[in-house]
Design a protein around this nucleic acid. Sequence first.
DNA 1: CTTATTCCCTGATTGC
DNA 2: TGCAATCAGGGAATAA
Length: 286
Amino acid sequence: MPELPEVETIRCDLYPRVCGRAITAVRITPDAVPLVDGASPAEFQRRLKGRRIEGLSRRGKYLILHLSGGLHLSGGLHLIVHLRMTGALLHRDAAAPADRYVRAVLSLDDGTELRYADLRKLGRLRLVAHPDEAVGRLGPEPLDARFTAARLRQAIGRRRAPIKAVLLDQRALAGLGNIYADEALFAARIHPQRRADTLSEAENRRLHRSIRRVLRDALDNRGASFRDYVDGGGREGRHQFHVKVFRRTGQPCYVCGAEIERTKVGGRSTHFCPRCQPQEVANGPT
DNA sequence: CTTATTCCCTGATTGC
DNA sequence: TGCAATCAGGGAATAA
């Protein structure tokens, strides 16, 4: 499940390989129709062919390919890719062995290709004139220098939902998914069910630091491959070996030895340490 | 504005 | 051992 660290790893892999390349051909398999948002596959192909990839950026969990106008193509265009659960964007030689579940292929002018693979077909490919059409409503980037503890407090606002639900809300904060929401709350020693608007100033600061630390560490490990995630070269990440609570139900907490528990918050499976992340706020000043 | 629920999709896992 | 039901979860859509 690609979240911010996974998508950023893919972006770093692909950036030097695809920037400057022109798209010479586009192929979309018939079963990929629902993946192509807002345009027919034929229209999608026609609008992409001949464009040059001028840049590759990331916003939250979205990858953005910045495309040029070709010789007789006018106006900027952006290909927005969201991998959702099982999407992958693979850069391969055109002659490389087939990958499973490939739904779309962009052939490039150096004999390589970008393959979009997606087992469950939950991902989305979308062409827009301005990236904000797709990512304009996203909250702040947690690894941006401008993301301070005050900005986190602002993102939480007066929301009364469980803090984990707010962390998963991309309009509050961009890029966290189920893995890193659980990991950040554990690192901050905050129960996932805590009502978001009741966090103390100290808890808010801990959560801010924890979110950034957890995402940084995951990025250093090239993302977490629990099931389907692979990077831009088809390789797995290593961060699944470093998580503290995610999918560790029944195993001992590395900090206190208590059994990691699993519940549901906002319809998502949620993992936490009942001793390190107590439901009740401790009495007294901290 | 808020929060909760359903749906999409298919391979892996669980239950009987 | 087999087969059906359930689970996984990001985000859009919908309901309240």
